Simulated assay, not measured.
Amino acid sequence: MTTRRDDPGGSRPRPFGGPRRFGARPGYGRPPERARPSGAAEGVSVLYGWHPVVQALGNAGRTLHRLLATENGAARLTEHFGTLRIVPELVRPSDINALLGPDAVHQGLYLEADPLAAPGLDDLPEDALLLALDQITDPHNVGAIVRTAAAFGVAGIVTTARHAPGATGVLAKSASGGLEHVPFVTVRNLAEALIELGERGFTRIGLDSEAETSLDALAPTRPAVIVLGAEGKGLRERTRSCCDVLAKIPFSGEIRSLNVSNAAAITLYALGRR
Rank of each mutant, 00 (worst) to 15 (best):
T3V: 09
R4E: 12
R4Q: 13
R5M: 15
D7Y: 03
D7G: 06
D7K: 06
D7P: 04
P8G: 01
G9A: 07
G9H: 00
G10P: 00
R12Q: 14
R12Y: 12
R12H: 12
P13V: 05
P13A: 09
R14L: 12
R14T: 12
P15D: 07
P15V: 05
G17L: 09
G17D: 09
G18E: 15
P19H: 15
P19A: 15
P19L: 14
P19V: 15
R20C: 10
F22T: 03
A24Q: 04
R25W: 04
R25F: 08
R25M: 09
R25K: 10
P26V: 03
P26N: 07
G27E: 07
G27L: 05
Y28P: 02
G29D: 00
G29K: 01
G29Y: 05
G29H: 03
R30C: 10
R30W: 08
P32Q: 02
P32S: 10
E33N: 11
R36Y: 13
R36W: 15
R36T: 14
P37M: 01
S38H: 15
G39L: 01
G39V: 04
A40E: 14
A40T: 13
A40N: 11
A40S: 15
A41E: 13
A41Y: 10
E42N: 13
E42D: 15
E42P: 06
E42T: 13
G43Y: 04
G43W: 04
G43R: 03
V44Y: 12
V44N: 11
V44A: 14
L47Y: 09
L47K: 06
P52T: 05
V53K: 06
V53Y: 05
V54W: 05
V54S: 07
A56T: 05
A56P: 03
L57H: 00
L57R: 05
N59L: 00
N59S: 06
N59T: 10
R62C: 04
L64T: 08
H65W: 12
L67Q: 02
L68Y: 13
L68Q: 08
A69S: 08
E71H: 08
